[in-house]
């Protein structure tokens, strides 16, 4: 039963990916589908730049910011969970809690006065906001390890560094990946809004559709971003799930977290 369900999901995702790829590579072939949504002979396919280009820029912006956020956030989370950084632990928890109440779009807008228009503010907002889920999840991962395991690692004669690299980080990894997933999903959404501050990305298509009242643009922009986000998110989820599964039920239980943040932006 269960296996069948998983297989249907995988097939659906592969299918979605294939259609997405086909659409990005040869959008004009799909023009017929979208023409009914246009008025007065307006173009059915976005024509101010290729959709593939926009998709790649979009992904690049998100990827760059998320990688940077992951490096900084994981580093900080490691720092505050070591004895040397312990005095910053309580504060950093509070900052993350407060920070996550900030709407990502507000962070984006507030970056504009500092960075001007273009890719800059989008990257900065994505980076800043992306820190929060990764930091929080890494922190949870590193601070909820089974005490018996951490203690034995010391008792076996691992140095602090060996314990971190061989035991703590690998065990926290499913949660860290989940944090990166959340950051990426929020990033994909915020980058879409980034088009309103002139960042190159898929939001451009939706904005153009809204401005020229062209439903076909709105729908194709919306569907591409939506499918992209769902596929990427599922990829991370599958990765985290695989990591968690290998080490058994104890760490999987930690995955279902009722306080998990919503992920949209």
């Amino acid at each position: 039963m269960k296996r069948d369900k998983i297989r249907t999901g995988t097939v659906l995702r592969l299918l979605a990916f294939a259609v997405l790829l086909a659409f990005l590579l040869a959008p004009d072939r799909f023009a017929g589908l979208l023409t009914p949504l246009t008025n007065n002979g307006a173009p059915a396919i976005y024509n101010q730049g290729t959709l593939l280009d926009l998709t790649l820029s979009h992904l690049f912006t998100v990827g760059l910011s998320t990688v940077a956020a992951a490096i900084v956030a994981i580093g900080l989370a490691i720092f505050v969970t070591r004895p040397a950084g312990a005095e910053f632990l309580a504060l950093s928890r509070a900052i993350v809690n407060i920070g996550q109440t900030f709407p990502p779009v507000a962070v984006l807008a507030l970056s504009v006065p500092i960075m001007g228009f273009g890719e800059g503010p989008t990257r900065m907002a994505l980076f800043l906001y992306g820190l929060l889920p990764i930091f929080e999840n890494t922190l949870v991962g590193l601070s909820t390890l089974p005490p018996a395991v951490v203690e034995t690692a010391s008792a076996m004669g691992m140095t602090g560094r060996q314990r971190l690299l061989k035991v703590e980080l690998p065990l926290a990894m499913p949660l860290i990946v989940e944090g990166i997933r959340l950051s990426t999903v929020i990033g994909l959404a915020t980058a879409t809004i980034g088009s309103t501050v002139a960042a190159k990305g898929l939001g451009e298509v939706i904005v153009a559709g809204l401005l020229s009242n062209n439903l076909a643009f709105i729908v194709q922009g919306g569907v591409i971003t939506g499918v992209l986000a769902v596929l990427i998110s599922d990829g991370f989820e599958a990765l985290a799930h695989r990591m968690a599964k290998r080490r058994g039920a104890s760490s999987e239980a930690r995955q279902s977290d009722p306080d998990g943040q919503g992920s949209s932006a």
Partner: peptide, 16 residues
């Protein structure tokens, strides 16, 4: 600690 063995109640095996 590397020269002394150590075993505890909940075995503390590394799950990964």
């Amino acid at each position: 600690r590397r020269s002394i063995g150590y075993a505890i109640q909940n075995h503390g095996l590394f799950p990964h």
